[in-house]
């Protein structure tokens, strides 16, 4: 046994504490304090008072979306050149750096020899992605960003969580169609 073991004895609850009545009462006090406090602020706002204080609110998601911080990392998108095609040159650095191994790229020849290389397919498995943002940081072409602001990521199957090239190029598209899971 190690020498410095400190044995802590858990305090026995008293009979009165065991009824949980004091805890329930304390909890109700906190909730009520927030409720009436916020109620007072919101009523004051109606009369144009206490404008500097912000009352807490509930966002009516999905109709109403919470504003995101400027650097918040959300679903990925691929950037476009002026010509409308992808900036990605399939260098596979994002695939290499990805700690979750969620990116899979297949490269092909670009018709323009000055660009030379482009992705034939570009899949991101959002079921595996940990949203670390390494792919954005490592990209030498600024071809991938995580600034779509989209958090509505859900599907009925694991296969449905895979974004393909079209989804990444058109982040406004309704993706992850639950009726049509993407075949692996």
């Amino acid at each position: 046994m190690a020498a410095n073991v400190k044995v802590l004895k858990r305090r026995e609850l008293t009979w009165w504490e065991n009824t949980f009545l004091p805890s329930i009462y304390a909890g109700l006090v906190i909730t009520s304090r927030h409720f009436f406090g916020n109620l007072a602020i919101h009523i004051s706002h109606v009369f144009g008072l206490r404008k500097k204080e912000r009352g807490s609110t509930t966002y009516q998601y999905p109709e109403e979306k919470r504003p995101l911080a400027h650097r918040y990392r959300t679903r990925h998108r691929l950037m476009k050149r002026d010509s409308g095609e992808t900036r990605c040159v399939a260098c596979m650095l994002c695939e290499t750096i990805c700690p979750a191994h969620c990116i899979a790229i297949v490269a092909k020849e670009h018709p323009d020899p000055d660009i030379e290389k482009m992705p034939a397919s570009f899949d991101i498995d959002l079921g595996k992605c940990v949203y670390c943002g390494f792919c954005v940081e490592v990209c030498p072409e600024d071809a991938i960003r995580m600034d779509t602001g989209r958090l509505d990521i859900a599907a009925y199957s694991r296969g449905g969580m895979i974004l393909n090239f079209d989804h990444l190029m058109n982040p406004e598209l309704p993706v992850l169609d639950p009726a049509k899971p993407v075949a692996r």
Partner: peptide, 9 residues
């Protein structure tokens, strides 16, 4: 310095 598209990289 086109290492991203170069197979030798």
């Amino acid at each position: 310095v086109d290492c991203p598209v170069c197979d030798q990289a």
